[in-house]
Design a binder for these strands. Structure first.
Lengths: 346, 346
DNA sequence: CTGAAAGCGCTTACAG
DNA sequence: CTGAAAGCGCTTACAG
C-alpha cells in the first residue's frame, strides 16, 4: 500500500512509512537500522524486512541536519577542466583519489576554481558550501587568490606540486628539482654544453623547481648559466614552438633544450623541424612528465616519468590521515623515473 | 560576536545568526536572500551585508528537507575506474559532462558500479540514495544486472554506445556499424582479401555493431565470411597478442586484422612482430577509437577517431533536456572520422 | 526492549 | 513589508 502510493506520487519512502508498515515507532526503526543493540532480534528482523521491501534509503539530508555528516574530500582543479589530458596526470590523479575515497568510505567530488581575478567565491566558502572535510588541490599557482586563502583556512589540505607553510597543509610531489638535475646531467653526460631551458609558467612552483635543478646541474659541471636562454612557455606547446625557434636562431650554439613538460618538448621538436635542425643530432631535447605519447614521438622523448595514479592514492591517503587527526610530514615525496630515449642520444 | 563564537566552535553560521545580527526574523532573511520582492530595499541591504560579513552559506541539507532539490546528474561507470585512460574516452566524456553541468547549474558526480554477480545495491537504489535526477552510463554490457534495472527505472538516462528500448533512455554514440563498414572497405580497397576480425567483448553492443559493419563490408565486396576468423579479445591488448598470433599461424593467408579497438590493434601489431610478420606489408591492421598514441605507433595506426569531449557535452545536454521534460530521439549520432594511416598502406 | 518528543536549518503558507 | 509557526526526514537523550 504505502509503497504503491509512494511510487505513484514519485515520493521517497521515509522512515515513517517503514515504522507504520512494521508497526513500530520511528525510534525503533532508526535503532534497528543503525545497529543499536537494544532492539529485540524479532523486531529487528521485521524492520529490516519491511525496509528492504519498501526499498527504503535514509535521506542524507535528514541525517545531515542531525549532525551526521558524510565525510567528503574534493579534488579542486585550478581553472577549467581541459578537453584532453595528454599527460594522463589528471585522470590518474582522479582515479587514485576515487579509489581510496571509495575504500575509506569518503564521498568524493571534483571542483574547478575560476582563475580570473574577480573571484566570486572564496576557498573557505567552497569548503563550507560543499561541507568538505578535506581537499586536494592541483594546478595551484602562486598568483592565485586561493594561494593565500588556503593558508588562512583550517581545512586539511593536500597540494600537488606546491609547498605552503602551514600545519594543515601537506605537499605531494616528486622531487622536481632533483629529477630535473638528473635529467640535465644526463644531457651533459651525452655531450651537450649549451643547454637552454624552455620553462613552464613563472608563477608555478614546479617551474621554479625544475629551473633550480637545471641551474644546479649546469653549475656542478662548470657550465655558464645564461639567463637569456631561459624562456617561459606557459606550459603551452604552441608557445614552445616559437620560443625554441627564436632561441635557436639567436643562439645557434644551443645544442639542447631542457623542457619543463613534454608538451613543451613536443613543441620544441616541431620548432626544430621547421628550422631544419635535426633532433637529437644537432639539438637534444628532454621533457618532463612522460606523456603516454612521448615514448612514440620522434623515436622517443627523454622525460621524467611520474605515476599519477600512485600520486592520487597518496593524496587521498594523506588528506584522510589529516582529517583523522594524525600529523603528517610537510611533504610526501613520490617516485619518478628518468626515461632515457632517442631525443637525447648524441 | 556571533561570528567569533562560531569560528571558535567551528560551527556553521546559520540563518538564525544572520537574523539575530541583522535584527530581523528568519522569514525576512530567507526572503531577502532568495530574492523575494516583498522586502524593503533597506532591509535587504542590511541582511545582505550581515550575511556577507558572517560568511553565511545556506545549508543544503536544510533546503533539501524543504523539498528544494539541487538537480544532480551522475556519470555511472561500469566496473572500477581504471588507472589509465589510453583512449582518452573517459576523460573527455567526463570533462564534457562537467562543462555542461556547470553551465546549467547541475551538480555532477561520478559513480562506479560493481560488475560482479552479487551486487549489493540496485540501480534504483543508487539513484534514490544519491538523489539523482539524471544519469549517464558508460561501459554498460548486456550481461550486467543494471541492464534490466535501467529499463525498469523511471529516471532519465543516457547510455553511451548502448541502445535500450525505453522512453526514458537515449543513446549517444557514433554509428559504429557504419564506421566499421567504412574502415573494412578501406582495407578491401587497399587490396586486402583475407580480413580477420579481433573483436571486443561478446556482451558489449559496440562489439556486435563493429562486427556487423565488418560482415556487411565483406558481403558487399563478395568476400567469404569465415566465422573462425572472428575472435573475442575482451578489449584486452594481451589477449589480442595471443589471438592474432594463433590466427595468423593457423591461417597464413590472412592479410589484415580489423580490430574492435586500438588497444587490440596495438596487441596485434606486437603479435605480428613476434611472428616476424611485417605490418602493413604482409598484414594490414586497423583499429578503433584513435587513441592519442595511435598516430605515433608504428608510423600510425589506421583508426576511427571519436570526439569524447563532444560526446560528453551531448550526453549532458541530452539528459538535461530529458530532465526538463522534453522528448529526445532514441539516438544522438556523433561524428567520427576514419584516420587512414601507415598500418593499412599496401 | 520500545516510544513520544525535541530539534538540526531551512522555506513557505498565513496572519497581521 | 514583516514575523510566528509548521514541518521536511532524521537521530537521540529521556522516560517508561
Amino acid at each position: 500500500m504505502a509503497k504503491d502510493r509512494k511510487l505513484y506520487l514519485n515520493e521517497r519512502t521515509t522512515i515513517r512509512d517503514v515504522a507504520q508498515e512494521a508497526g513500530v515507532s520511528l525510534t525503533t526503526v532508526s535503532h534497528a537500522l543503525n545497529g543499536y543493540k537494544d532492539v529485540s532480534e524479532k523486531t529487528r528482523q521485521k524492520v529490516m524486512e519491511v525496509a528492504r521491501r519498501l526499498d527504503y534509503m535514509p535521506d542524507e539530508a535528514g541525517r545531515s541536519l542531525r549532525g551526521i555528516q558524510k565525510k567528503t574530500i574534493a579534488l579542486l582543479l585550478a581553472g577549467e577542466l581541459p578537453e584532453e589530458d595528454p599527460s594522463g596526470m589528471m585522470f590518474g590523479l582522479t582515479s587514485g583519489i576515487y579509489k581510496i575515497a571509495q575504500k575509506m568510505e569518503y564521498e568524493f567530488t571534483i571542483l574547478t576554481m575560476p582563475t580570473n581575478k574577480q573571484i566570486k567565491i572564496s576557498f573557505g566558502q567552497i569548503c563550507k558550501k560543499k561541507k568538505l572535510t578535506g581537499i586536494i588541490v592541483d594546478g595551484l599557482a602562486m598568483d592565485m587568490p586561493y594561494y593565500e586563502q588556503i593558508k588562512n583556512s583550517e581545512i586539511p589540505c593536500v597540494l600537488v606540486d606546491v609547498a605552503l607553510e602551514s600545519d594543515h597543509v601537506c605537499e605531494v610531489s616528486v622531487d622536481n628539482e632533483k629529477a630535473s638535475f638528473e635529467e640535465v646531467e644526463h644531457l651533459i653526460e651525452n655531450g651537450c654544453r649549451n643547454i637552454a631551458m624552455l620553462s613552464g609558467k613563472k608563477m608555478a612552483q614546479v617551474s621554479e623547481r625544475r629551473e633550480c635543478g637545471y641551474r644546479r646541474a649546469l653549475e656542478k659541471h662548470g657550465l655558464h648559466i645564461r639567463e637569456e636562454w631561459i624562456e617561459d612557455c606557459l606550459f603551452e606547446q604552441k608557445i614552445a614552438v616559437q620560443k625554441s625557434i627564436e632561441l635557436k636562431k639567436s643562439y645557434p650554439e644551443i645544442d639542447a633544450f631542457f623542457c619543463a613538460s613534454d608538451g613543451i618538448a613536443i613543441g620544441a621538436i616541431e620548432g626544430m623541424g621547421q628550422l631544419g635542425v635535426r633532433v637529437p643530432d644537432d639539438v637534444a631535447i628532454a621533457g618532463f612528465d612522460d606523456y603516454t605519447v612521448s615514448q612514440y614521438i620522434h623515436g622517443g622523448i627523454t622525460s621524467i616519468k611520474q605515476y599519477p595514479y600512485k600520486m592520487g592514492v597518496a593524496c587521498a591517503n594523506t588528506v584522510i590521515s589529516m582529517i583523522e587527526g594524525n600529523r603528517v610530514p610537510d611533504w610526501i615525496p613520490m617516485e619518478y623515473k628518468l626515461m632515457k630515449r632517442a631525443s637525447t642520444k648524441k
